[in-house]
Nucleic acid binder design. Sequence first.
DNA 1: AATCGCGACAACCGCATACCT
DNA 2: TAGGTATGCGGTTGTCGCGAT
Length: 273
Amino acid sequence: MGRKPCCSKEDLNRGAWTAEEDRILKAYIKANGEGRWGSLPKKAGLKRCGKSCRLRWLNYLRPDIKRGNITSEEEDLIIRLHSLLGNKWSLIAGRLPGRTDNEIKNYWNTCLRKKVQGQHQPKRCEPSVDEAPVVVRTKAIRCAEMFIPPQQRIAQNQEKNVTMEPAMTGELAAEKVPNSKSDEHSSVDPREDTWWDVLVGLDTSNASTSEALDFDFLQLWGSESPCSHYTRREDCKGMLEDWMSDATLPFEMELTSLASFLNSEEEWLGGEL
DNA sequence: AATCGCGACAACCGCATACCT
DNA sequence: TAGGTATGCGGTTGTCGCGAT
């Protein structure tokens, strides 16, 4: 038994969307909002499957989409994010307002991959896939997840009627420092995780802002952990503080911070591995 | 002028995961 | 908790336009 197809292919239009189909889809979403893609085509009177409608909306019809002309800044960011995150197109797209994962994926496959392969002959002791990347990539992915644009996070959560966490509303997520008394974390050796993992997973209920920011990662992981590299660096601590304390930062500032983070990643990879 | 090759990008497909009942 | 459904994601394919021959 094969997998059940997502929709019957009979009587459905396939291939390029017509202007009329676009108009119908836009009008329907304007009136009824996004979501319920499965039933949307029938309700809207479109002979398309729900997935196709969703894709068309997300990648082409949404009003906030920027099209074409990827700037050199965006290109640089894509290259550097890809080097850390791999093919996590949706995460990369999340850092580029108005760009879709599909667009970035296509741009990478058609333009950047060759460019990067051409110029990216290892010039210095770069790490092999078997060395540091697991830690680095996990941390970088976590970082990117934290970097979903605040507007997007807020919108998403309002849509779901979720109470905003402090970090999402601009108040600092008051992180409780894990220690030997912490019942929630004492059974888990934090060295198993990156400090991003632990940081994000911390119980935010009791500690004050200053406690959170004074958190001593060295104490948690010890000086030999590769993660402790960051705890010794004041600039990294500062970035962390910025990110965690103000989710309403202007997007440009976030990009600047992210760029700094990526630079520090590159320095670390080049210098210590 | 015809056609071939290639790049760009829209769209499709299958799988994974989240969510709901 | 299990099973079904909806949604998201990333790889792949199809189509179109344009330049080269």
